[in-house]
Design a protein around this nucleic acid. Sequence first.
DNA 1: TTACAGAATGTAAACGTTTACATCTGCGAA
DNA 2: TTCGCAGATGTAAACGTTTACATTCTGTAA
Lengths: 351, 351
Amino acid sequence: MSATIREVARDARVSVATVSRVLNGKGPVREVTSRRVRAAVDRLRYVPHSGARSLITRRTNAIGVLLPDLFGEFFSEAIRGIDRAARGAGYQLLVSGSHGDRAQAETALRSMRGRVDGLVVMSPNVDGPTLSANLPEGWPVILLNCAVDGAAFDSINIDNEGGATAMVKHLAGLGHRRIAHVTGPADNWDARERCRGYRRAVLAGGGGDARELEVPGDFTEESGYRAARVVIGMRPRPTAIFAANDSMAIGLLSAFQEQGVRVPGDIAVGGFDDIPIARFMTPPLSSVAVSIADLGARAMQRLLAALRDGRRHVPCHETLPTRLVARRSSGSRTLKPTPSTRHSRTRRKDP
Amino acid sequence: MSATIREVARDARVSVATVSRVLNGKGPVREVTSRRVRAAVDRLRYVPHSGARSLITRRTNAIGVLLPDLFGEFFSEAIRGIDRAARGAGYQLLVSGSHGDRAQAETALRSMRGRVDGLVVMSPNVDGPTLSANLPEGWPVILLNCAVDGAAFDSINIDNEGGATAMVKHLAGLGHRRIAHVTGPADNWDARERCRGYRRAVLAGGGGDARELEVPGDFTEESGYRAARVVIGMRPRPTAIFAANDSMAIGLLSAFQEQGVRVPGDIAVGGFDDIPIARFMTPPLSSVAVSIADLGARAMQRLLAALRDGRRHVPCHETLPTRLVARRSSGSRTLKPTPSTRHSRTRRKDP
DNA sequence: TTACAGAATGTAAACGTTTACATCTGCGAA
DNA sequence: TTCGCAGATGTAAACGTTTACATTCTGTAA
């Protein structure tokens, strides 16, 4: 079927070693020979067999990417960043998504072993011990937003807690005293961290124990929609809500609109993630911006660096800052931001 | 470093052939031997070297996935569907995203050759001839929403034209005579098909040449926002707009809200894609639903079938239907759909 | 001329699997 | 007992690369 290096060698009247040297650009080869080899390669449409290559070089030039079952912008943005960084370094991506539970993640992890040179793992809903038990200690892994602490692995996290704190303080700064919180799923690391930030900020503001103002959600618009009814029924009614992500905040806005509750007049709303659609809501949604693509790209860079360092690499931990984006839904007094001031991203091809 | 089949064989006091037989489940092996081998495998944490394996079996158990530079729900949904189907069959996914231009797509295609058993290609903004020139004719490929016709390759498309026609007819059925259209990028296949559907429906409804009512967009909310101003300035002003995707429709809603134009009272709005957020807009957005995940899963199933059939496979073409979802933004008289009636998807983990 | 250095090229041994084929067991039938 | 057969296991030859080492060139200095 496909041509081998031997046939190329014969066609170019050289040895296989020379063909290999030309292809890998190492070792001295005369210009004229090199040209002849390249011509043969083109003529025969030769492509090196990656298996054979990795068999002897002990490298696959592939990176495994393990992502959870997340929807929407988050997934694509993360992949985008990772892909960009990987491609630049000549690595390919072996992707495995949708790992709701532990067993699936384990299976995926196992099947990747031996196929990849390193691993990017994002697994916010798998607990730390399980994770580290299944991770091949000793080879390059970087953890994204995982509930693993300790120095065993490289990791990068978003500053969920800090972002949440900032949002709550922003609301408090606008005069709100009773600030409710719609939480994310209990088994999700990001959600827990954001909740912790909320509690800390409320406590710091003298709000006392805020547990009674927490409404459970699961990151869906739907759950935000339902949470709105709960909040409306609270006595005394909160004057502000911080939702653990934008999807739920959008659900809130939808429900409030239906119920005739005015935002931010009757109740102020803040979200988290600053998804692109946030600024196009009515009213535009205040949120906490995090650059997922950058998170992914950064992770891949760190992984590649670890790959280069080999055994001399020392794992380290990094936290990416967030940025508060105040818009009308929180009743911010800032100028109404016009859509044309959108920050970094300009093109969106989303048929 | 990692154990080899030979060490496992030694540890279990059998030959490498027996180990291989146990691992692949082919050939007769006594139960007691099999157990001993499996114990050794576990003890040594043996994982077969995929390169060596694919070297001799001539199969990689990996499928290449080539996706364009698309953002948002679309990308994640497509991958999700593909991943689900692939995993079930024991295949892994070599993903390459973000291919704005032709050169990048070519590079990605080349680097995948030899690493995968088959290819899923979604490339709405690469022209047909270029694509087919770079595709390895003769081995399993399936095209998603590509501008390639002819019988050379398997393909699956969304019924963009039919969906667009349905939306325009829906609007016309509500009494609208001047229906504007915000188009997608000119180089995008989906966008062109949707535009064609718009024109056909307008023509069929006796609307004459509708070119003057077409406003260029690029699938971003931003471009929808800008298009709104153009439409507002038209004389006589259209009473309805069909945006080529939901993102732009959301941009329209945002702009109209700001300008005090009421939807659907002053102007009716329809989108395309039915992204999850559509029903949570104010007013809830009418749209054309397409199941991207199903599209991806279906594509992978077809590819796997082709893989099984081998050389006896005959390429075929398939078009997936769309479904009109009428909500308040078009002024539909249907009951206000409550969020709890969301169709298939229930869970969304989108931190 | 010869000797030699270094550049260019060739040879062949890995790498870790799978699998056709050979061999070695028992065991029942002749 | 001998033979044949089938089931269980072992042996060794591929598969297509890379690369250490050996060999052959080419040009220059003695």
